[in-house]
């Protein structure tokens, strides 16, 4: 067990040492961070000048909007990041011989697959949580300043908590499941290629084609019901449901919970697909010949 944990830590260190990881962090967080800081400055500055201007409740609405945007952005760019990083950690490492060295240590092969997946997921969720946490911090600053009568005088009772802990945890679980399935999907592809770029492109093309088909399916179904049946087997439709704006806002606004069929069904389906991809990937990896 300690060996497995060391392996996960090692993989995490490797992910963090990559420039891709840093760039992903930047790409994911730079828009919400900048926008929220600007909104905060506008709010405080206008208050300070006595111009009235931005109401606190408006600020809360803005930050909440940013939070939703952050979640959506995450849903869009995480597949690209995952494709690149997993391409590196399987195809790339296999091509460079890192994998060979790793398998000369007494770790089991399935542990390698699971540890690499875990490391990427941990990083991914920390990255998205960082943005969320910053937005929350934004509101805390606004509230602290607002409630300080020495600086600002129109104290208004308002919602100061952007995301309640339960909603945050639920969103976390959704992101985890959606990305778990994606990680499994990419790992499966990376078993068959030693070139990380090639693997990333091919798997992303497959993913996009699948999602395009899912989006076209409702219209095609009018022609023939079988088109819809095929679309049912596209796993991306569950993932897109999980990161859809309606789902995120529903959970934030407490109109939806994980127990709701709208969320529960794609969750269960994603978990099933993830299990399928992982088992298949591990089975392939067990038989893989490490030759370079």
């Amino acid at each position: 067990m300690t060996r497995f944990l060391t392996l996960v830590r090692f993989e995490l260190v490797k992910v963090l040492a990559r420039k891709k990881a840093f760039l992903f962090l930047l790409a994911l967080n730079v828009v919400p961070l900048l926008a929220s800081v600007i909104a905060l400055l506008v709010y405080l500055k206008m208050k300070g000048l006595g111009l009235g201007g931005l109401e606190y409740s408006v600020l809360v609405e803005m930050v909440r909007g940013l939070f939703t945007a952050h979640m959506l952005l995450f849903g869009w760019i995480s597949p690209f990041f995952l494709a690149l990083v997993i391409g590196d950690s399987f195809s790339g490492e296999s091509g460079r011989g890192y994998l060979k060295l790793l398998l000369l240590t007494p770790v089991r092969r399935w542990q390698v697959v699971v540890a690499k997946a875990l490391a990427v997921l941990v990083f991914l969720l920390l990255a998205v949580a960082l943005g969320g946490f910053f937005l929350q911090l934004d509101l805390w600053v606004a509230r602290a300043v607002t409630e300080n009568p020495a600086m600002i005088w129109d104290v208004k009772p308002a919602t100061t908590v952007l995301v309640e802990t339960s909603a945050a945890l639920q969103l976390f679980v959704l992101s985890f499941l959606a990305n778990l399935a994606l990680v499994g999907f990419f790992i499966l592809f990376s078993m068959f290629s030693e070139s990380p770029v090639l693997m990333a492109f091919i798997s992303l093309i497959v993913l996009m084609t699948m999602q395009t088909y899912v989006l076209m399916a409702p219209y095609l179904t009018r022609l023939d019901a079988r088109y819809g049946q095929v679309a049912d087997w596209c796993f991306t439709r569950h993932l897109s449901r999980l990161s859809e704006i309606k789902t995120v806002q529903g959970i934030l606004g407490k109109t939806l919970s994980l127990a709701d069929p709208w969320v529960r069904e794609p969750m269960v389906a994603s978990l099933g697909w993830a299990a399928f991809f992982f088992l298949l990937a591990i089975a392939v990896f067990q038989r893989k010949q490490i030759l370079s």
């Binding site: 011989g97 890192y98 000369l104």
Partner: peptide
């Protein structure tokens, strides 16, 4: 696994990070 615990091995060129 038990064998590799007691074995030091180097196959082809060492490919560290």
């Amino acid at each position: 696994v038990p064998v590799l615990e007691r074995t030091g091995a180097l196959v082809e060129k060492p490919s560290f990070l």
